[in-house]
């Protein structure tokens, strides 16, 4: 089963709809609530990074019998230092995002914590693709 979502940049009102849609699909399939929570959290963080840092993008979700693969793709500025970005507390979130409670620098660490596998492909000036795998 495949799901596709468009993520609009700087749209904080609808931010989270892709992960919420994925959560619904997994719930309908009867996946364990713990795995659904991990997938929803990881995808929400990835989605919000596309909203805040990359001017939006899109998400492709593929659901298999024993795992789900979530890919969030953007054409944003890329991440200059992935190792630094992965550290808890590192954030370049703009003030407008911080005023809403984003910018703890915990999103990427949360994705790592909640997924069985994650990988980041990024190129400066071209964009970032984050791939997350959650086992049920």
């Amino acid at each position: 089963m495949k799901l596709d979502f468009v993520i609009r940049g700087s749209d904080f009102i609808n931010a989270g709809e892709a992960s919420s849609g994925t959560k619904k699909a997994l719930t309908r399939l009867g996946i364990s609530p713990k795995a659904i929570k991990r997938a929803a959290i990881a995808m929400y963080e990835a989605e919000l990074n596309a909203v805040i840092h990359a001017g939006g993008g899109n998400a492709e979700v593929e659901i298999f019998s024993d795992h789900v693969q979530i890919r969030v793709i953007d054409n944003g500025p890329g991440i200059p230092d992935v190792e630094l970005a992965m550290q808890e507390g590192w954030s370049t979130a703009p003030d407008i995002a911080r005023e809403m409670g984003f910018g703890a620098g915990m999103g990427l660490p949360n994705i790592k914590k909640n997924s069985n596998d994650m990988s980041i492909e990024t190129e400066i000036g071209h964009g970032t693709t984050l791939t997350i795998m959650i086992r049920f």
Binding site: I41, Y44, E45, M100, G101, F102, G103, A104, G105, M106, G107, P109, N110, K113
Partner: peptide
Amino acid sequence: CDLLSWVIS
């Protein structure tokens, strides 16, 4: 807490 990702975690 008032930091969203911190709360999620």
